[in-house]
């Protein structure tokens, strides 16, 4: 038993290996933060833009939006990453692994968040629109000042969950040689013949995503109001 325990500690908590690869994992953490921040900003913005476009009710445009959204919700993110990274060079575009991962996850987050925003917008009672329009507010003003503030509050919990789930997909970038946390940890494992860098990687992910989970819960309680 004792020797099993020692082997376990040596494998996953080897201080020497951890100390040696800490700078690599730290660098990977920065890359992951950069990638995650870009994905969150562009994905949520693109999703909102699509939802607003869809609210105009232009039938051909909406059919296109629904097609795109369903496509990127159905495809596994890894397939999209590989497709962009290995497929686009065929048409004279050669995005880096970083750009491929960013673009792919942005498209996926855009698709899922569009559906969430759209559900929020359509859940706002018709009476809210009518009251606002009856005072002379335009369609856009009603959307901006009356409907969206309410819709976005409703969407915060599902949006937070989905954003965290998709942002964790930055780990998929390791397949196309992005030097993010998992990529750095994997190569450290190969070089050291010891899995301890994976432990470091897991800790790095916790440090990054646990606060997001907590902030999401805080927003959820703060954003509710009495009806």
């Amino acid at each position: 038993m004792a020797s099993n325990w020692e082997r376990f500690v040596d494998a996953f908590f080897n201080a020497r290996v951890m100390a040696k690869y800490l700078p690599d994992i730290a660098h990977g953490t920065l890359v992951t933060i950069e990638l995650a921040a870009l994905v969150i900003v562009s994905g949520l913005a693109a999703g909102l833009a699509l939802a607003l476009l869809r609210s105009l009710g232009l039938r051909p445009v909406n059919l296109l939006i629904i097609f795109v959204v369903d496509l990127f919700r159905a495809l596994p993110p890894l397939v999209i990453i590989v497709f962009i990274y290995f497929g686009l060079p065929a048409v004279e575009l050669a995005p880096s692994g970083f750009v491929s991962t960013w673009l792919s996850l942005t498209l996926v987050l855009m698709a899922f968040s569009e559906e969430i925003y759209w559900a929020g917008i359509t859940s706002i009672a018709k009476g809210q629109w009518e009251a606002a329009r009856s005072t002379g507010l335009s369609y856009g003003q009603t959307l901006m000042h009356v409907v969206l503030p309410q819709a976005i509050r409703l969407t915060i919990p599902p949006l937070t969950n989905r954003t965290i789930a998709i942002t964790k997909g930055t780990a998929l970038g390791t397949v196309v040689a992005v030097s993010e946390i998992l990529g750095m940890a994997s190569s450290a494992v190969s070089n050291s013949y010891n899995p301890s860098p994976l432990t470091l990687g897991a800790i790095a992910y916790l440090i990054l995503f646990l606060p997001m989970v907590i902030v999401g819960r805080w927003l959820e309680t703060r954003m509710t109001w009495k009806r």
């Binding site: 009672a125 009476g127 809210q128 009518e130 009251a131 606002a132 009356v146 503030p149 309410q150 509050r153 109001w225 009495k226 009806r227």
Partner: peptide, 8 residues
């Protein structure tokens, strides 16, 4: 009938 005040 249903007031339709902006709850936020």
């Amino acid at each position: 009938q249903s007031f339709n005040l902006y709850p936020h």
